[in-house]
Write a protein that binds this DNA or RNA. Sequence first.
DNA 1: AGCCATGCACCG
DNA 2: CGGTGCATGGCT
Length: 146
Amino acid sequence: MIRLGEVRKVLSANDLGLTGSHQAGIAIPKDRNILSFFPPLDSMEYNPDCILTVATPQTGHLWDLRFVYYNSKLHGQGTRNEYRLTGTTRMLRELSASVGDLIRFRRSQFGDIDVTVQERYGPILSPPTERILSNGWRMTISDPED
DNA sequence: AGCCATGCACCG
DNA sequence: CGGTGCATGGCT
């Protein structure tokens, strides 16, 4: 079941394509609650993916992102076992995102997702309902599993 | 686990 | 030809 709410992450240089790598996407942690925010992908498939159309209200555009589970390790050959969200480079550039800023994915009751970038100058302000994960991701979800 | 990198393909 | 993404490997 897909959950409502929002997840946030501090943007790294790699997330913004500033490191010289070809930016293979923002890594999504394999946390049940965060994964439940994104569409389910079938682990039985090899590298399953889906297109995630998101809105950026700050610039008034729609973007087709790709949510992919690189899972070659689960299928015999390979070393990958991680989720990624790709196709974000242009969107983040249009939003003038910088290293250290927060990217926020918010899912409304209608199921659509919007993405905003929150500039950061000092400490991260966190509402009391937000849970901070050890990996630096943050989430506010109505009915977390644990 | 998360971030960085690489060889190739595609596309403007 | 430069920029970007794919799918992988590497580093810590």
